[in-house]
Design a binder for these strands. Structure first.
Lengths: 180, 180
DNA sequence: GAAGATTGATCCCTCAATCTTG
DNA sequence: CAAGATTGAGGGATCAATCTTC
């Protein structure tokens, strides 16, 4: 450490790390810019809306939604408040547990996320999947899962956080939010 | 897109993408928290200090330093101002080009980054390299480079942004030839 | 006009404090 | 006391506007 700052990384590791570190800086910024320009929402707001859109009745507890978006309840609470002001999400109390709160996607919110989804997916495909071979797709998934296990040892498994798309567009319930 | 929000991604791709997307959210946060708790600086501040520490005379133009930290000149300018207030970096005018500004690491700044480096490297090893096989190290580097090319097509090559450690702790103003 | 650099308004995230319910 | 959730203060990133020099 006296002569070289990154002495504990070999030359090969250093190069692999820099490529990855740059990606960690650049890719989220690119996805963020794309969502802001194309749809006018943040990437994280999209994650929240998309997550809700694929849940039964478009509803999920704040606690579980935070897990499914790799976030914290605090951050989620702030974002849901913003989404509520835009009329895309509303809060509902949990009748079975007074501590719990449901986040519910509104009809307007569903329309928003349905308009945003194909553009976002296309961008992910363009930036992440198109440059890679199919073997590399799987390698990326495997590698990411392994690192994630080290980063968040007690976190939920990724497979358990992928919303199942079956329930989309299920029950037409209450349509419009109250505010005008 | 009417039935399923992420219809354009196959089930396999969806799982790979979620694992990677979660990593994009969790790993930077983990590195950030680690640096703040252990050293009291942000991860990006460390990148700046470490980059400077490995340049000849611990000096680099703002423009080039921004490239080497996958950043923008604007962000870098704000950060360097903060580092200047802490006494770790100082600005110097470029005698050859009135538009250009040099960022120079101070002795205190060098001591700081030298104290921080082994801890940061150890954390990177623990979170990124230890969970992977050597083959996966290379795969990660290759994959990251490929995606980066799609994200920043006109950006500098990663190899050109890795500070060469040869020059560290150099005393006099000597122009060093690059090793072939 | 183009390139290097700085500034500041605005937005968002983080984190600790707080509250309520189980 | 533990778990779910909210709030607000403080800090950092973004982006457009601006300035200077080539």
């Amino acid at each position: 450490m006296d002569r070289e700052v990154d002495a504990r990384l070999s030359a090969e590791e250093l190069q692999d790390w820099y490529a990855f570190a740059f990606l960690l800086l650049r890719l989220p910024a690119a996805l963020e810019t794309h969502m802001q320009r194309e749809v006018g929402i943040s990437h994280f707001e999209y994650l929240v809306l998309a997550g809700l859109s694929m849940m039964p009745r478009h509803t999920q507890r704040m606690r579980d939604l935070a897990d499914n978006t790799a976030s914290t309840v605090s951050r989620l609470s702030n974002v849901v408040s913003r989404l509520e002001k835009r009329g895309w999400v509303r809060r509902e109390p949990d009748p079975d547990d007074g501590r719990s709160t449901f986040a519910v996607l509104t009809a307007t919110g569903l329309a928003t996320v349905e308009a945003a989804a194909p553009r976002h997916t296309a961008e992910v495909r363009r930036l992440v999947f198109d440059p890679l071979t199919k073997a590399q797709h799987r390698q990326l998934g495997t590698i990411a899962t392994r690192i994630l296990r080290a980063v968040v040892p007690d976190g939920p498994r990724v497979e358990d956080c992928i919303p199942t798309p079956h329930q989309h567009r299920q029950t037409p319930e209450i349509e419009e939010p109250v505010h005008g």
